[in-house]
Each structure stands twice: as structure tokens, then as C-alpha cells.
């Protein structure tokens, strides 16, 4: 459970410039939610994420993790152990010479036994789709871009946190690799983790998220289901977001005279609608 109460964050103390990144934000996220965070560049998304895992502390207000306030160094250290954060382009931070060592690095820092570390490395490799353990001896630098991203995610999963946060997890990946990363997100959520991802990809929000938080100039301006957001043209305009590209195309087809329902937000919706229609036709014929 994550709870923000009237959180304000200024970078003034860090940068010397008067810069308010978040302004009086309150929300809570229950265990096992799957939440997207959206907003234009500079809206405060990264700051918000770093407040959750204790990298930053609020200037005003409080952040709670599992009902514990993040205001002492012990609580902040605990937060780092509870929250796994996958940065943008996480593969750029590889430094070990084998994949096994790369993934074992985080668990090793937690002082786990060798046996526990080994088990965790194997398990997290499986969770990102590598079923053969011989990959552990290969260099992470020899992998393709998509494989590197999955290994980087595995090295966060290996720390077995209850909360997983990913910053732009599919950016720069080809379709096949992006789909693999989407599957990891869905699976981690199904396994019971609280998953948060930051993205500029509106189609991804519709496909994956049950809830979306929208930030605009440091304010939380929307907190609800994606479909409600994408029906609110004014909100999208004000926040620099857009209707998902798939929805735009469906809308232009409707304007062109095709009789498609207005509640199609993604290709899955369209497939459902078409299935339903063909079933109805069969019933009518019978």
C-alpha cells in the first residue's frame, strides 16, 4: 500500500533553482493494483516515482509505505527493499561480465546467502522468459536490445520486492521485445505484485493499466480508469496527452461512415465487437 498525503516536492534545496516538481498531491495505491503514470515531459512523473522508493523525501506532506511513514533513515532503507525500480534504459547500467553476476548483484548487496541468491537469480530469469540457465555465463553486453532490457528487469525482480515500478519500460524496443516486456508486467501483476509504469505510450495504457494517474505541471489532475481519461478531450488537451493512436484511427473510420461502436479503445475491443457481431449473425441465421 502506497499513500501520498499532501505531498509537495521542490528541487530548490538540491539545485539552488526555484523549481516545484510536485504540488500538494494526495492518492493511495492498494497492493496488487496495476497503475500507469502519464503526463508530458517535466510534469513530475520521475519525481513521484523516486518519492515512492525513498530516493527523494517530500518537502511537505508525507509518503507512507504499508502504513509506515518514510521519514526516518530506517524507514527509507526499508522502502528501498520493498520497491524495485527499473529506470529508463536500465541496460545502460550493466557492469558485470556475466548475466548471472549482473542479476546477483542486487540480492548480494542485501546480504543474502549464496543459495538464496542462486535460487532468486534462476527464478527471475524464468520470469523474464529465459528458461535455460546456461545463459547465466554469457556476457550481458552480447545480448540484443530486447534481451538486455529483460535481463535488466530480471535484476530488479531478483530482489523480490512487493512493488515494481518501471520507467518507460518499452521505449526503444522492437515490437516483439516490447510484447515480451508487456507480458512480464502482466505476469508480475498476476503474481500479486503492485506494478506501476510510467509511459508516453497511450495505447500501452489502454492495453495494460486498470488505473491511470495524470500529472500536469506538478499537479495530479486525473486519477481514474484509462477509458474515462481518453473520453475527456479537454483533459487530454490540457495535459499534452492524446487519444491512443488506435482509437484515433477507429474514430476516423466512424467519421468516414463505418458503423463501429464508440466504446472501441483498442484492437482487443474491436476484436470482441466483431466476434459478438458474427455470433449474432449466426444466431439470426439459425
Amino acid at each position: 500500500m502506497i499513500r501520498f498525503k499532501n505531498v509537495t516536492f521542490d528541487y530548490t534545496a538540491l539545485s539552488g533553482r526555484d523549481q516545484r516538481a510536485l504540488d500538494n498531491i494526495s492518492f493511495s495505491i492498494r497492493p496488487n493494483e496495476l497503475v500507469a503514470i502519464a503526463g508530458s515531459a517535466g510534469s513530475g512523473k520521475t519525481t513521484l516515482v523516486q518519492l515512492i522508493n525513498g530516493l527523494l523525501r517530500p518537502s511537505l506532506g508525507t509518503v507512507e509505505l504499508d502504513s509506515e511513514m518514510l521519514d526516518t533513515s530506517q524507514a527509507l532503507e526499508k522502502a528501498l527493499r520493498k520497491v524495485g525500480l527499473v529506470f529508463q534504459f536500465p541496460e545502460s547500467q550493466f557492469f558485470e561480465d556475466t548475466i548471472g553476476k549482473e542479476i546477483a548483484f542486487g540480492p548480494g548487496n542485501r546480504g543474502w546467502s549464496d543459495a538464496k541468491i542462486r535460487k532468486s537469480v534462476d527464478l527471475s530469469l524464468k520470469r523474464v522468459g529465459f528458461n535455460k540457465s546456461d545463459i547465466k555465463d554469457r556476457s550481458p553486453f552480447q545480448l540484443s536490445g530486447g534481451e538486455k532490457r529483460r535481463i535488466a528487469i530480471a535484476s530488479t525482480l531478483a530482489m523480490q520486492t512487493d512493488i515494481l515500478i518501471l520507467d518507460e519500460p518499452t521505449v526503444g524496443l522492437d515490437r516483439r521485445s516490447a510484447t515480451a516486456v508487456e507480458e512480464i508486467i502482466v505476469n508480475e501483476h498476476a503474481r500479486g505484485a503492485l506494478v506501476i509504469f510510467v509511459t508516453h505510450d497511450m495505447d500501452l495504457i489502454v492495453r495494460l493499466a486498470r488505473r491511470v494517474l495524470v500529472l500536469n505541471a506538478g499537479n495530479l489532475v486525473f486519477d481514474g480508469v484509462p477509458r474515462q481519461l481518453f473520453n475527456d478531450a479537454q483533459m487530454l488537451d490540457d495535459t499534452g496527452l492524446e487519444v491512443p493512436p488506435t482509437m484515433q484511427i477507429l474514430e476516423s473510420l466512424r467519421l468516414g461512415g463505418r458503423k463501429l461502436p464508440a466504446n472501441c479503445f483498442c484492437l482487443d475491443d474491436l476484436a470482441c465487437f466483431l466476434d459478438q457481431r458474427s455470433n449474432e449473425e449466426i444466431i439470426t441465421r439459425e
Binding site: G39, S40, A41, E168, V171, G172, H200, M202, G240, L241, E242
Partner: peptide, 8 residues
């Protein structure tokens, strides 16, 4: 790829 929809 790194831009928000408006900047894109």
C-alpha cells in the same frame, strides 16, 4: 521515442 505526445 523519448518524447511525450505533444512534443512528438
Amino acid at each position: 521515442s523519448l518524447l511525450d505526445p505533444g512534443n512528438k
